[in-house]
Amino acid sequence: MAEATWEKSASPTVKSAGGGRLKFLIGGLLILAAVAYLIISGTSAGARYFITVDELVANRDYVGKTVRISGAVIGDTIQYDGQNLIMDFTIAHIPTEYQNLALTLYEAANDPNATRLPVHIVNQPKPDLLQHEAQAILTGKLGEDGVFYASELLLKCPTRFEEAEPGKAIVEPSA
């Protein structure tokens, strides 16, 4: 093999002393400890508690704390000031446990009794998916004024409700 000859190889039967092994062991443990520290400190710094709108609104302790919430976007409330990039809309509470996301979003957005939360976002272009019955996943803080100031907005595909019963359109002739 041409490539094997490239390297100077040490004599094959060098016996390593026990001290050598210990060195490797200590080195390895140090690396592990450093990485463990990195991961743990990163986790505590980056952890975002995912809570529901109900929980957020019910507990004053959350005011001013960075949390992650998700809710159903109510289409009529979306207001976007394209000049200053200010986005306002309202989301409705959705439970954490559900069988069908699309159906849950549909019900939440159309339930007048569901807890609602106004959301305010600045400096972001209006996302393409911000629509009625979209699931908004927001990171931010609840202000004293009861408005959720979000710094991060993620949206889940809103066409899922149709997907839940995709065949419906085939049966019912559209009016």
Binding site: A45, G46, A47, R48, I51, R68, T96
Partner: peptide, 8 residues
Amino acid sequence: NITLGTDY
């Protein structure tokens, strides 16, 4: 329910 953001 904890998720880790990009800062992590």
